[in-house]
Write a protein that binds this DNA or RNA. Sequence first.
DNA 1: CCAAGTTAGATCGAATATCGATATAGTTCC
DNA 2: GGAACTATATCGATATTCGATCTAACTTGG
Lengths: 147, 147
Amino acid sequence: MERLTRSIEDFNSLFIRLPASDRLNFSALSVLHTLSRRGPCRLSDLVRTEQIKQPALTSAMAKLERDGLVERSPDPSDGRASMLSLTSDGRSIVSRRHADRAEQLGRLIDRLPPADRTRLLGIAGVLDRIVQLAGEQDGKPDERSGQ
Amino acid sequence: MERLTRSIEDFNSLFIRLPASDRLNFSALSVLHTLSRRGPCRLSDLVRTEQIKQPALTSAMAKLERDGLVERSPDPSDGRASMLSLTSDGRSIVSRRHADRAEQLGRLIDRLPPADRTRLLGIAGVLDRIVQLAGEQDGKPDERSGQ
DNA sequence: CCAAGTTAGATCGAATATCGATATAGTTCC
DNA sequence: GGAACTATATCGATATTCGATCTAACTTGG
């Protein structure tokens, strides 16, 4: 476990740095990614998973909204809350970053021995299953299935 | 590549968040990790890999030094520079975080089907090779070999 | 050796991010 | 309707970041 953990740590140092961030800080990018993967949700849902407190998230959202990357609509079932969702500009930032990472990772993987390449590509499903397991642990038992 | 990249992104969202940070922010933790993996180096070496500019790194180092996690000694070959290195307190923060991650990852992996577990454990070497390839690309062709 | 250019790192001031505490407004339960 | 709760906003203080600039130390060509 030691060994695998260290390899993942080192790989992440690399992977995280691949795409140079635009004018957005780490928290803002993380919020965009989360909104992209989970779909519209409320501020308090994000507070649970992002690594910042609610006031910081409120001001981050204000900036993202000013920049036209996120929009809010009233939550029909609760007058206190808003539903937050990505605008198309927001979606394109996320997918641009994703595409950059995929491309740069692809360039590295192309230089691996074929056997390694195959093994690595085959690991995606395992990673998904781990994420799912972790989600079941603290969150509700399903929810991670929707595209 | 799409598929693998997305799985890694999702896994990272999880992996990054595993250990709640002490009183140190993301940049400080990243610096500690880098110092731990690369051994003593100069401020300007870190500026090249960390995602912050030199003034921010200088003030981060000042805080880490105040907190007793990093120490500096004069660089014998260059009177302008200092060599930065982890103190034993700094080392133990890094290894504590590493151990936490290993333990939590281990708990998840234990719940995978045996075949998946084996495949995942076998991927460490491939990740190392990718990191090495990326290092050869922009840095000097070797250097990544030391323990 | 010396002047000019370069590099390592520190410092300053402004902008931004974050936090804890608290305020506001909507909701639920009795 | 009123107490308790929840979602989010706001406020003031502290921390982080950056761009610009500064100093000291190194390097080089003569």
